[in-house]
Design a protein around this nucleic acid. Structure first.
Length: 743
DNA sequence: CTTTTAATATTTTTT
DNA sequence: ATATTAAAAG
């Protein structure tokens, strides 16, 4: 037992072994935060706490999975199987499915994704004949989301003077209330919850059913929360519901400097106020960074010190001083892309880094494209995270909508999506009649659609027949879904929706081929899902079980090739918690990073600065910052200035490409082109290990042998005799060559 | 009711 | 540039 505690430093160990009451662990970037949580869980288990009574909450499935793996490594699988480690959303949806009847839902409720919920809001606005220029669906969606995150019910919303004040006109506030109320009712009738509902209803459940709350607070004798700075008000309150009235055994871990989700309702004051809520709580600070060089840590400190709101702490590193942070500007986004790609190729070749040692971090997903092209040109393997996840692809969502409907006939958004896809002659007019009748009679769409005559639907005989046919098709699916396992039922649905034959098989465009492959992939994952559950001893796995699982999956969770060596590309947001040897932070421009939209107020600028802090602190060895003076965005070219955040970093940690001021636009351009991303500290660096006589391979010219090496630094050139194309002079700075074995 | 065409809005970050 | 929506033609 003492053994595994030896692997911790003094302050980590103190945090791990204190378990008598609430504790707050402020953990700087790279200070072993996950380590503390996992060791604490192991420590608790070794001290006789039952795994059944420990709850650990994270923000991503990936973090949860990793945590479980690491606890298992310390303490063995038998103990960890019963642990509840998961995201807020997945743990709460598990609880809600168990207790669904208490709050007027059925346990197989659908989870509406953002698109579903936006569509529903859009339809409600239309049905109420409101002007969607004033009540923009996205805006209304945000209002509703904020209300739920603040635990405000529609009823409370109506009476909330602050809000009425805020919208300046009672009229508008009232209409928003009305939409919110209708939206809530429609979701309930559809037996559906959106992401916010998973938190909101959990709170209501615990609040209104004391005996249920009691059941869970008795059960969870110890609660751990990771990334507490990212909790919103609802999450914060639920945690308190589970701990405050009884045992107070809660440990929260976080770093206020890494709070980057306020747009999603995260509230930094949750972590700042923790100590006043639990006055007896103990505070632990983890200040030693084990990840990055001193230069990186110091540079990050100098950056974050420009923010006002923060818990004081001194993050330090005892690793090597390390290289300075490199900063380079380019003429265009295009040049930025190709030079970053070249730099990766060069560092890969000359400095013996593997591709997986690199990450390119950007502010917006849209920036990935240029880097993707540049890397592909150089044949560098890469993987882009984010963007469209597998389950958000159209063809997958279509089939999944059939599955959703078959296992929850109340699902309004699923019906709307597929009632006329593939085309079966049931258009908007008919659908709107059905919806009108359904909301008039306060019933589900399916009910009206199945008995159009008893609801006095004004449709002609032909439409009646079409509805009948649709109804029969779905009924067959329903039957299959309730009798067969997920795989068999899913296969049948994929086959018989007719999507493959009608829509996709017609012409063999690459897009269609990939869509069909995706459907096969879906069928494969159904198979894996069912068989892995059977291994765990649960036979009889239904489509609804599968759906419950995939609703909360994101792109990062569907990753299959973990082991392959590739350059990673992702947004800074999704990079949180990860680390890489070399980090490129690209697009450091005013209007992009910080984003144009965040320039309104200081708080948002501070959040963007924290985001930059997160980006820099991902790096173990090198940070390379780039910006473009001109960028193509939203269909046009924009001149761009370097980001204000660049000058927030203490200059002593930066290595500039030239003496010109990087933060003004008066640099005269010329200096940018000559700058190289690589620090050429010695004459040999471009030549690297190349020697006369070495055999090399060039992407375009093929194989060849070096006959001469001349020049130094950026001018280093090699004369190469190629087998196919004869003698060529190559400027090593740009040449894409690799050494190959001579045999 | 569907398909085609033209116009218009839209983009930050995500469980 | 792309996606979504409205209008017009079939």
């Amino acid at each position: 037992m003492a053994d595994f505690l030896q692997q911790l430093n003094e302050s980590q160990r103190e945090a791990v072994i204190y378990n008598d009451g609430p504790s707050l662990v402020i953990a700087g970037a790279g200070s072993g935060k996950t380590r503390v949580i996992t060791y604490k869980i192991a420590y608790l288990l070794k001290n006789g706490i039952s795994p059944h009574s420990i709850l650990a909450l994270t923000f991503t499935n990936k973090a949860a999975r990793e945590m479980k793996v690491r606890v298992t490594e310390i303490i063995g699988e038998n103990m960890t199987r019963l642990l509840w480690i998961g995201t807020f959303h997945s743990i709460f949806s598990k609880i809600l499915r168990r207790e669904a009847s208490r709050i007027g839902f059925y346990s197989d409720f659908t989870i509406y994704d953002k698109q579903d919920s936006k569509n529903l809001i859009k339809n409600i606005i239309k049905e109420k004949k409101l002007d969607d220029k004033i009540y923009k669906p996205t805006f209304v969606q945000n209002i509703i989301s904020k209300a739920k995150n603040a635990l405000i019910t529609p009823k409370q919303y109506a009476n909330n003077c602050d809000l009425i004040e805020q919208y300046n006109q009672a009229q508008k506030a009232y209409i928003l209330y009305d939409i919110y109320l209708t939206y809530s009712n429609r979701c309930k009738i559809a037996n559906a919850m959106d992401f916010d509902d998973l938190l909101f209803y959990t709170y209501l459940l615990f609040n209104e059913c004391k005996e249920i709350a009691q059941k869970y607070w008795n059960r969870f004798q110890f609660i751990l929360v990771d990334e507490y700075q990212d909790t919103n008000f609802a999450q914060h309150e639920i945690i308190q519901q589970l701990t405050i009235e009884q045992h107070h055994r809660i440990c929260i871990v976080g770093d206020d400097a890494q709070s980057i989700y306020s747009f999603r309702g995260a509230n930094i004051s949750n972590i700042l106020n923790f100590r006043s809520i639990y006055p007896e709580s103990k505070l632990f600070k983890l200040e030693q960074n084990y990840r990055s060089t001193q230069t990186i840590v110091n540079a990050a400190n100098s950056l974050i010190s420009k923010n006002r709101e923060q818990i004081p702490k001194t993050i330090y590193s005892q690793k090597a001083i390390g290289e300075k942070i490199r900063l380079t500007g380019f003429y265009s986004d295009y040049e930025e892309g190709s030079r970053v790609a070249n730099c990766i190729a060069e560092m890969h070749m000359l400095k013996k880094y593997e591709y997986k040692d690199f990450v390119i971090l950007y502010r917006t997903n849209a920036q990935s494209r240029i880097f993707e092209e540049a890397l592909r040109k150089l044949n560098i393997p890469y993987k882009i995270y984010g963007g469209l996840s597998f389950y958000q692809r159209k063809e997958i969502k279509d089939v999944v909508a059939y599955m959703r409907l078959a296992s929850n006939l109340a699902d309004e958004e699923a019906i709307r999506r597929i009632i006329n896809y593939p085309n079966r002659g049931i258009g908007d007019i008919t659908v709107n009649k059905i919806i009108a009748a359904a909301s008039f009679h306060n019933t589900i769409l399916w009910e009206v659609l199945s008995n159009p005559l008893s609801y006095n639907l004004k449709i002609n005989a032909a439409t009646f027949e079409k509805l009948k046919k649709f109804q029969l098709l779905i009924n067959r699916f329903v039957e299959k879904v309730s009798t067969q396992n997920a795989y068999n039922a899913g296969r049948m649905i994929i086959r018989e929706t007719g999507l493959i034959n009608n829509e996709l098989y017609e012409d063999q465009t690459p897009e269609n081929i990939s869509r069909i492959q995706n459907l096969e992939e879906l069928s494969n994952s159904l198979y894996t899902f069912v068989s892995s559950r059977i291994e765990e001893g649960n036979a009889n796995i239904k489509i609804s079980d599968f759906l419950a699982e995939i609703f909360l999956l994101t792109d990062q969770d569907t990753d299959k090739n973990e082991n392959i060596n590739f350059v990673t590309m992702m947004t800074i947001h999704s990079a949180k918690g990860l680390e890489f040897k070399n980090v490129f932070v690209v697009g450091l421009e005013e209007g992009l990073f910080p984003s144009e939209l965040s320039k309104q107020n200081l708080q948002e600028i501070e959040e963007e600065r924290r985001l930059f802090y997160v980006a820099i602190t991902r790096a173990k060895e090198n940070v390379i910052l780039t910006y473009a003076k001109n960028r193509f965005q939203n269909g046009q070219f924009h001149d761009r200035l370097p980001s204000r955040f660049i000058k927030d970093i203490d200059e002593q940690y930066l290595s500039l490409p030239s003496k010109s001021h990087v933060c003004t636009n008066s640099g005269g351009g010329g200096s940018f082109k000559e700058s190289s991303l690589i620090n050429h500290q010695n004459n040999q660096s471009n030549i690297g290990d190349l020697r006369i006589g070495n055999k090399i391979r060039h992407k375009r010219f093929g194989d060849g042998r070096i006959v001469a090496l001349i020049g130094k630094n950026d001018n280093a050139q090699a004369t190469v005799e190629f087998e196919q194309v004869g003698i060529k002079q190559l400027l090593l700075k740009f040449a894409r060559i690799e050494m190959i074995n001579d045999d």
